[in-house]
Simulated scan of single mutants.
Amino acid sequence: MTVRLTLISPAANEALREVRFDDDGPLDAAGIACAEAVASAVGPSPRAYSSPSPRCRRTAEALGLPSEPVDALAGCAMGRWRGQTLAAVAAAEEAAVSAWLSDPAAAPHGGESLRDLRVRVGGWIDELREGSGRVTAVVEPDVIRAATVHALAAPDSMAWRLDVRPLTAVHLSGRAGRWNLRTGEPLGPRQR
């Protein structure tokens, strides 16, 4: 049986709206309302997971998915940049931000590199066994980028070219070594 993995990006919160490196801030009332409004578009899943962040866990709850937080699906560890806006970091550390954006192995913030994130997330995906059936995970946008790059065996730098909007779904089907991709499905009420 083919694995059918649906990766759902969380609803927006203050950090996302401010283009700030996530600091495990909660999902605010507006984000909860948006997630609840599209919950009918998310079918039940026998196996549901989430990034351990409060934003992803709360989005999964609002979508009606009883999910298990998985450390391997955590967003990229951003070290000393955590909680800061990209604009503030770029103003203070222009060369470091440039290195981070151009070299997937760079981690000038003292956290995790883009490559390390892809390897971690890819390892989790590859552990999904044939016969796993349908799996749903509410995960941070950078986790969706890493999973997509891994599944397509694309260069790590391609992650920067993937735009992941809030409350959208990316579908991977197949198994380790061979995945198919269906991208960018916005969540919304099911059409009858």
Rank of each mutant, 00 (worst) to 15 (best):
L63F: 11
R190T: 15
S67R: 03
S67N: 03
H109K: 04
V42R: 14
Q191T: 13
R178C: 15
D103I: 01
Y49T: 10
T6K: 04
V38G: 08
P69W: 07
A90R: 13
L5P: 03
G184Q: 13
R47A: 13
E14I: 08
I125H: 02
R190Y: 12
V135Q: 04
H109W: 05
A107M: 02
T85Y: 09
L27W: 04
A60Y: 07
A90D: 08
A41Q: 08
M158R: 15
H171C: 14
V3D: 03
G25E: 13
C76M: 10
D116I: 01
D163Y: 11
A91K: 04
E61L: 03
R115H: 06
C76W: 02
S50G: 09
G83R: 10
S67W: 01
Y49D: 06
L63D: 11
V119H: 03
C34N: 12
R58K: 09
R57E: 01
S113E: 03
R134A: 12
V42Q: 09
V135F: 04
S40K: 06
P46Q: 00
A72W: 01
A96S: 13
D28Q: 05
W81M: 00
A39L: 07
A39P: 09
D24T: 04
N180A: 14
E127C: 11
T85P: 10
P44T: 15
S157G: 10
A146P: 06
G64V: 05
P10N: 08
V139P: 12
V19I: 05
E36H: 02
P166F: 14
E14C: 01
S157C: 08
M1C: 03
W179E: 04
S102I: 04
P141A: 15
R4Q: 12
D24H: 09
R58G: 03
T168K: 07
D163V: 13
R17S: 10
D116H: 00
I125D: 01
E112D: 06
A87N: 00
P54N: 09
A154L: 14
P189H: 12
P69A: 06
V42I: 12
S113W: 00
V3L: 03
V19H: 11
A169G: 13
